[in-house]
């Protein structure tokens, strides 16, 4: 069943990527092409095969000690240095509910 533009708009809204102009149309076409290309994988939902979630088969229980390490933390000015908007010691975002917000 092909994805409709409404479906694709829903996915884009969720993924926080605004689609503008003819992007919605193009994206819908692309996603349908791509999903078609993925069809061969559908034959592999085999009951007696374990899925591989990690390429290193027997890797397990990787943990670190509970200790602070010097030099890993970032000084405040460095931590904030790439932010588009800061206030005092904090990262700043505009109104969350704001005009047009739906949360």
């Amino acid at each position: 069943m092909a994805l409709t533009q409404t479906d694709v708009r829903g996915i884009a809204d969720y993924a926080r990527i605004a689609l503008e102009g003819d992007e919605l149309e193009q994206m819908t076409a692309y996603l349908n092409d791509a999903v078609d290309m993925l069809a061969p994988v559908l034959d592999y939902d085999l009951p007696d095969v374990e899925p591989t979630f990690h390429p290193i088969g027997d890797l397990a229980n990787v943990m670190r000690e509970d200790e602070e390490l010097a030099g890993r933390g970032l000084p405040l000015d460095v931590a904030l240095s790439n932010a588009g908007s800061v206030r005092d010691r904090s990262f700043r975002v505009p109104s969350i509910l704001g005009e047009g917000g739906d949360r």
Binding site: D66, E68, G73, L76, R89, S90, F91
Partner: peptide
């Protein structure tokens, strides 16, 4: 002493963004 996935100090009362890392 430290966070779940990094070596940052756990603290309740430090100033904002005092204990952060990549």
């Amino acid at each position: 002493d430290t966070k779940m996935f990094c070596n940052c100090k756990l603290s309740h009362d430090d100033e904002p963004n005092a204990n952060v890392c990549p």
